[in-house]
């Protein structure tokens, strides 16, 4: 069995995230990390791999420092990694990203079939949560998204998921795409031995030519939407901090009335 887990390098949540002049996520901060929610996907892949004796391939697309994201996946226990790196990818939208990742998955499948493609539920930056569904569509795979629990048995994958209004159990035959939520597991912290071992694990860097993708169809030029402007939310002004001396409940009520919030 072979599992491909897609990971992304994103600006650190705690750092000052911003959009650059061109409306794209500014990546000059140097304090990026593996998208936290992708750690849940890596963990889920590793658990399944342990049960089913599978190979786990971490896949990422992004600039040079995106290699840190696959490195982290390798430290956690993935066997090898593929990094799609090409200058023409800057500014690629979610659909271009899905096409590139799909081509990379197909390339990995040349070494032997890929049974599961796994992703986190969303990237905690600008791409929102559209990628898993777009990637499943590109790969023409059954999608089982937002999994809070995943099992594989008898050539089928089964997930449990909690949606806004309902709880569901879904099942589909392999191969399939599964996205997992932060509820799926507690990602392992790489042990020292894992960090050492990861240094020797192969990271295969491929470009668009290797994947047979025309650079004109990706990047800012290939995007279907265009950012006109971007602005940070203005800071809140007139903020008040009070300490309760028995009167804060009353002051809260007065505040709500005064600001016409009741």
């Amino acid at each position: 069995m072979r599992i491909v887990v897609c990971v992304k390098h994103v600006p650190d949540l705690m750092a000052d995230r911003r959009l650059g002049e061109d409306g794209r996520v500014a990546r000059d901060g140097g304090d990026g990390t593996l998208n936290e929610l992708d750690e849940n996907a890596v963990e889920a892949a590793l658990v399944l791999a342990e049960e089913h004796d599978a190979e786990v391939v971490a896949l990422t697309m992004g600039p040079d420092d995106a290699e840190d994201a696959v490195r982290r996946a390798l430290q956690m226990g993935a066997d090898r990694a593929v990094h799609v790196l090409d200058d023409a990818l800057a500014g690629t939208d979610v659909f271009g990203t899905a096409r590139v990742l799909a081509a990379a998955v197909r390339r990995i499948a040349e070494d032997g079939p890929v049974d599961l493609v796994m992703t986190g539920m969303a990237s905690l930056d600008a791409l929102t949560s559209m990628l898993p569904a777009a990637l499943a569509a590109e790969l023409d795979l059954p999608q089982l998204t937002l999994a809070a629990g995943v099992d594989v048995a008898d050539g089928a994958v089964r997930v449990r998921r909690d949606l806004d209004h309902a709880t569901e159990v879904l099942r589909a035959p392999l191969p399939a795409l599964v996205s997992v939520t932060d509820q799926a597991n507690e990602p392992r912290y790489p042990a020292f031995a894992g960090i050492m071992a990861a240094r020797k694990k192969p990271v295969d860097t491929v470009d668009l030519a290797d994947l047979g993708i025309d650079p004109a169809t990706v990047g800012t030029g290939g995007a279907r939407t265009q950012v006109l402007s971007a602005a940070e939310r203005p800071p809140r002004t007139d903020r008040v901090l009070i300490t309760d001396e028995g009167d804060a409940g009353v002051r809260l009520a007065e505040y709500l009335v005064e600001h016409k919030l009741v």
Binding site: R18, A230, R233
Partner: peptide, 15 residues
């Protein structure tokens, strides 16, 4: 909204 609503971007649809 982007970055969990700390930023807003204005975009146009090209299609």
């Amino acid at each position: 909204q982007v970055f969990a609503a700390t930023w807003t971007s204005r975009c146009t649809v090209r299609t």
